[in-house]
């Protein structure tokens, strides 16, 4: 075994293997923090219900398969649409009344929404969770040389990267994205130009929520689909968002993927710290750069 200053270094394949698996977790972090960033940018709402929407996405896929026979590929499209539509309804009925108030109110409301969603599903399904089968086309495993990885996990990384790239392109390179960026800076002026900002706000919230639901469907075959699957993840995702910089699109994607890999790396170097390393980094970033790595003050 290699040694560096007396510390035993783990073999390279183990390091690469854990980093690759970390990239899978990082893909979920990136998708979830991306939606949070887009929502926070325009609405100034810290969407605490994001984990619940992620969970609802997975549940929608599982229930659709069980009761309606809707397969994975269709669920990948339909579940985000359905959960996104639910998000639009909640934004119109509830969240809308809190704009202009202290962001704390939005946080409390969305926290309440997540409690209601989790409680309702716990009542029906219990907390034990259910499995969702890996779709046939993605069965099997691939030999990367340093590890053998289930094909589905590679698909998760690829699909997340594509979705993040498409979202980035929409926001940074299109007319609609320019309108969104402008409204993030000065919504009143954008509305005074004749743009229907309330509609843009609803659509943005729906899109952010749909991204969370998409992450939920993607995760269904790798984890147990349970009502509490979102609440454990959302805490880490908030740390990712704080590290990347609230509201930064690029920051959320880069720090989501990066922190997933750092978590994986910690699992081989010092496994005991793997569940707190993200929070340690968050604390350091908050001291060194309170606006986050990619945030603007």
């Amino acid at each position: 075994m290699n040694e560096l200053m007396g510390i035993a270094l783990p073999p390279l394949p183990a390091v690469l293997g854990q980093m690759t698996l970390g990239l899978v977790n990082g893909s979920f972090y990136a998708l979830l923090s991306l939606g949070l960033a887009v929502i926070f940018g325009l609405l100034r709402v810290v969407n605490f219900a994001h984990g619940a929407f992620y969970m609802l996405g997975a549940f929608a896929a599982a229930l659709a398969l069980e009761h309606l026979g809707i397969n994975y590929w269709l669920a990948l499209l339909l579940a985000p649409l359905a959960v996104g539509a639910l998000g639009v309804v909640l934004e119109r009925l509830l969240l809308r009344h809190l704009y202009g108030l202290d962001p704390l109110y939005g946080l409390l409301l969305t926290f309440g929404i997540s409690l209601v969603a989790e409680g309702a599903l716990l009542q029906h399904f219990g907390s034990s969770g259910q499995t969702y089968p890996v779709p046939d086309a993605l069965q099997g495993a691939v030999n990367l040389g340093y590890m053998i990885i289930p094909l589905y996990r590679l698909w998760v990384i690829a699909a997340s990267l594509v979705v993040c790239l498409v979202t980035w392109f929409l926001i940074e390179r299109t007319r609609l994205g320019a309108t969104l960026r402008a409204a993030t800076e000065n919504a009143r002026l954008v509305q005074a130009f004749g743009i229907n900002v309330p509609l843009l706000v609803s659509a943005t919230y729906g899109a952010g929520v749909a991204l969370a639901a998409l992450a939920g469907v993607l995760s269904a075959p790798v984890i147990q689909v349970s009502p509490l699957m979102g609440s454990s993840l959302v805490i880490v995702v908030f740390a990712v968002v704080v590290i990347g910089g609230m509201g930064s699109i690029l920051g959320s994607v880069v720090s989501g993927l990066g922190l997933g890999m750092i978590e994986g790396l910690t699992k081989v170097i010092y496994p005991q710290a793997s569940s707190i390393v993200v929070f340690l980094i968050m604390a350091l970033v908050l001291i060194w750069r309170p606006t986050g790595l990619f945030g603007k003050s």
Binding site: A178, R181, L189, F193, N196
Partner: peptide, 27 residues
């Protein structure tokens, strides 16, 4: 609502100019 008023054919140039920093000049 303000956007409906603007669509009656109003162009507004605000005092603080309202140039968006995250948009290019052409955007």
């Amino acid at each position: 609502a303000p956007h409906r008023i603007a669509r009656l054919g109003i162009g507004y140039c605000p005092e603080e100019r309202g140039i968006f920093s995250s948009l290019s000049t052409e955007e």
